[in-house]
Design a protein around this nucleic acid. Sequence first.
DNA 1: GCCGTTTTCGGCCCGACTGTTTTCAGTCG
Length: 575
Amino acid sequence: MTNREIATTLQTIADLLEIKGESRFRVGAYRRAAESLLNLGRDVADVRREGALEAVPGVGEAIALKVGELLDTGRLVYLETLEAEVPRSLTQLLGVPDLGPKKIKLFWEKAGVTDLAALEAAAKAGTLRDLPGMGPKSEAKLLEGLASLARRSGRTPLGRALPAAEAQLERLRAVPGVVRAEAVGSLRRRRETVGDLDLLVAASDPTAAMDAFTGQASVARVLGRGDTKASVEFQDGLRAQLWVHPPERFGTALVHATGSKEHNVALRERALARGLSLSEHALTPTDGGPEILLATEEEVHRALGLPYIPPELREATGEIRAAERGALPERLEVEHVRAALHNHSTWSDGKATIREMAEGAIARGYRVLAITDHSFGLGIAQGVDAEGLLRQRREIDAVQQELGDRLQLLQGIEVEIRADGTLDLPDDVLEALDVVVASLHVALRQPREQVTARALAALRNPHVDILGHPTGRLLPDREGADLDMDAVLSAARETGTALEINANPRRLDLPDVYVRRAMELGVMLSINTDAHRVEHYDFLSFGVDVARRGWVPPEAVINTWATERLVGWLGERKG
DNA sequence: GCCGTTTTCGGCCCGACTGTTTTCAGTCG
């Protein structure tokens, strides 16, 4: 079983226990363990072989036993017993907005509701209206929630959510009295997909900002509105939430709204241990002293005895402990990236000439640009062959002449890793190039052993410098190849090959959890936009965000190195 | 069910908002 499958099983247990009315702490324990497995970055089966299951955060004796049973038998007797008690189909009801475990239990016990269809039928028949705590408004809200569930299509990719949020922020910043407006929540933490858009505004009087937010033409429905918080659903089904807090409380508000929830819990526990209660409004001494107002996040962290913790690390995966020890990674900035090592031109499926790509790179402050068109084997991209590469070299030399020392051009290739694991250009051709990116595009659905063997063969080819977009996934829907990622990472370290963080928002590949594992193992990384046109260079910040989420310091990214060092490294790899 | 420079047992964040309620429960983040 995969980590994801085991995590899903633990989530199901949590759901069933919650509906059953079990202790919320026990429920939370299963959820924490599930989250922990998803963040592990390596196969839980390997961790178990090392006897280290209980070293995984949130996994204790009881859950370790259950994980072991799942790994050994693919089944879990505990879950089967639970399902005999509480119908599993009830868990789908938890996805309905504003419907939680208490009411689900009520509907199940008092109205015989066991799934979504039965819920809708019961609500329409009016049989839920008279249950305790229910009423006509609750019934209408429930029906609306069901309709909304049918309209929505899961989480929104960061690449779509970020521009939508920017448009909202621009609108809010224009409102009189608004001092600041920021995207918060998982968006600010730069998770690869987000649920709702979370926005935070600093203003002494919330009314104008709230009005501007809820009154837009694109708003289909106002879901709620209070003194400090409003939420809406746009016509396209996307939901957004706005908090408004006064500027002098913006620090605590920003910490609160950025999350993650688990990170906030850890921060608040830390505050309590210091005799302080932390909320979005203020830090308040528990002995009854006056509120301490904090306008910036830096002040909040300082008040808790911590250095600043950047948003993308706030996932409750050890960042507070690391901050305490002064062991947070040096933060990677877009400006650190000086080399673009994976780019296309009109020689394959790119839309810009080498010259145009070069000018675009200079405009963005790059010092090194590698042209890495597709090799000819990838049919859809009309790649270059050995003879084409010779002609392309002459063009690159000519453009280099014109550019002088404004930019160093490199000639490379994105060479296809074929279904049989060979590369579709011979070694002597690869050897003559400055940089070689090897990528999987075809036969991604091969069995684990087979597709892993292809990646390993590419990594072990001495001419390959970078493994491009390692998993081949496409967000939000196409899963990547079923790679044995620890084997891939180990081979990358052994051979000194860099793994790519592909910054295209549809890829974000290597995914952040494996990036963090790569850092544990000492693997080098290369952040590239895979630009097919000049504007694609602007994807870079997405790649930097993935690296930050993976605790990557600038030093571990070959694109940050000074030109001589980078070119020297590429040269040495030629032997 | 997990976890420990306050604990191996007794804790395990904090508040907004809504809809049902005469003071609170449920849900959300």
